[in-house]
Design a protein around this nucleic acid. Structure first.
Lengths: 213, 213, 213, 213
DNA sequence: CCCTAACCGAGACGGTACGTCTGGTCTTTAT
DNA sequence: ATAAAGACCAGACGTACCGTCTCGGTTAGGG
């Protein structure tokens, strides 16, 4: 997949020269892909449609990506990076005020807001769905989009453990799921509405189970 | 969609006469759909392929279902009903031994086993993914496949509340997600391995937070 | 083909009992077939359409006819018979005033009028076209629709031979084509306009070649 | 229709770029179309079948032609042009030995031979039939296939008029039908056998009527 | 500073599947 | 037993996209 950075010297394909790549085209393709997914939905977004909308030849897409899922994934990653750049450098910091419950609630509230933003919802949902069924893409989706965020939760929980605020024998990688997964499932499978009250309640319910007894 | 029970008098389409429907064809289509999804995966399963394998005309599929997702959903529902019939009547009972932790662990272990069974995994995963992106189908998927199971969790938790085993102010519909959603997300998004140990740990972590304080 | 009256005891098919045949259905089918061919053209006329318009099951058509061409052929024959019955008994008489040229011109003028009547043109043209490509139907078309008329020409020419008006060594079956075929081709293949003047001219040109020298 | 030379700027369809057209595909499609019509007949020849046999995508056919009739028409025109090229430049010359009767007989005999050649008969018959019922195609069939030949007859007759061999007041466009149409009808509608003797007789019967009186 | 290789827009190509339409058969229910 | 109704298997229709493959044209950078 094109996502893997080191362009392995594949036997069949002539590796394209990334140095000569057209930045204009890349941008136009990202924009077209995101716009189309938002407008007509992922299944009715086609590589041909993206190419036409971007004013680009189909081959220019196939030269750099392996599928529409791949295009969309990179487009979405790029969107995140742009947003990060726009917001400043400290994007990926997890608050650590010493009050674990408050910190978790704050982050979860921010996540709720993001999931409700239609600009993110459509492509994010499309990628998640594709990843469910397409294992390679799912792995990239996980590693590039999910994992960094999850690691921050784990780090914050570990920090709380060091402070003696939660039990030392708790596995942070499992504990974080108590907060994150219910929200994820409500959003993905529409098992219920998502709101700040809801995520606050999650923290109230789950965090207590992790406290020292 | 054929799933909606009251066959609304659609203006365009002549409603087919369900009384004359061929049971042979229906069975053959279900079998073919499930087999193909298991063999070649959902995206490479086609309506034409299902028809060919079932020895059925394409029109016979389009007469009764609106899409391959719809076919597969009903096929999977039927699979569940058949399994239920085969196992006896008391399929949907949630154990209530008085020991809530043990009961939850037992049910979650059974769910883990089911999710690991390739017979269920492929079509279930395909439907879940489709439901993420296709809202009407997602709603049916939720109502017909997910909801009944979730309700049993809620009932069991309510029963524990009545017994004073967990706090009265806990909302069972949220509490159940602490057990169910982490497993669901690990499975759908491959955020981690699923096992009996894992679900046992989930119960250990989350249940304590719900106990009377 | 159903046109062949003696329903041969085919091995496969159960010969339908003509005695129980519904006259209502037959009429409705003829009417529907002719109407549809006139309205939407032969290629877009379908057996299903005829059945629906006639308020008849498809099987009722397939029971008695072998194809839409066959239905239309019989419908057209029936149309002719009805017209004949309406006009009186002496429909098929060729005028014999003693003036061969005048008689030929009169009959050809009547044919021109008929070919220009849209009621006849569409189905007649459709049948002719089908017969060009479908030999069995073509033979029936020839025998039932064309041949009787041609025979009248031959008879009239023979009578003229007896009267010494045209050479004795002329073959009437060939001679008649000099009058009939040019008109037929102009009509079928649109090689030129058809009119009374045109057929008069044909007689003027061709008849002289047949006179005693 | 693709046959119409000036490719009018149709509003809906994007006009394909004829410069990039694959000659290989065109040839293969012509060959496949003619072969299939000869083998299984026109009605059972399908666009899919042509595409499969030619080793071509269906879209490649629909891109350049509007229907199977259109394909076959051009295939047949191409066949004629190839034969012409193979035979030399002077294909379309009508003999003018000074003996009109002999010249007409010679050309008609050649036509009889051609109509009897199965290679020509099947597609030619199919096109003629389609043209009877499909007016636009019929017009092209007439203009491209029939008209050039008919014009040669007219020219030859005009030349005979100049030589005083037939009456000056005879319209050559009508006179030629006395020779051509009877043969055409016998062939198309199977009203009689066609042979050299037959066409010789036609000339004997009809030509005399055109002589100066 | 040009030459030549690459990328680029464009779009034709061989294909697969779509969802629809019709052909001809079979089955059900009513007369 | 025939008829109306219509579901069934079959398969062609014409369309939409897929991913590959030319085509000029432009746009570098190495000679």
């Amino acid at each position: 997949m094109a996502v893997q950075k080191p362009p392995q010297p594949a036997p069949g394909k002539p590796v394209p020269d990334a140095g000569r790549r057209s930045e204009r085209s890349r941008r136009a393709i990202y924009d077209a892909a995101l716009a189309l997914v938002a407008e007509v939905g992922y299944p009715r977004t086609t590589v041909e449609g993206i190419a036409a909308r971007a004013g680009v030849g189909k081959q220019t897409i196939y030269r750099w990506w392996s599928s529409k899922a791949d295009v969309l994934l990179e487009a979405f990653l790029d969107l995140g990076e742009q947003a990060a750049r726009a917001a400043g450098q400290e994007e990926y910091a997890f608050p650590d005020t010493g009050d674990l419950a408050a910190d978790l609630k704050a982050v979860l509230r921010a996540t709720v807001d993001e999931l409700r933003d239609p600009k993110y919802d459509a492509p994010y949902r499309a990628l998640a769905a594709e990843g469910v069924v397409n294992e390679p893409l799912g792995r990239v989706f996980l590693a590039r989009l999910l994992e960094p965020g999850l690691q921050l939760y784990a780090d914050r929980l570990r920090s709380a453990q060091d402070a003696g605020q939660i039990r030392a024998d708790v596995d942070p990688r499992i504990a974080l799921e108590l907060f994150v997964s219910p929200l994820a499932q409500r959003w993905l499978q529409r098992t219920g509405p998502i709101s700040h009250e809801y995520t606050d309640t999650l923290v109230d319910y789950a965090l207590y189970g992790l406290l020292p007894r």
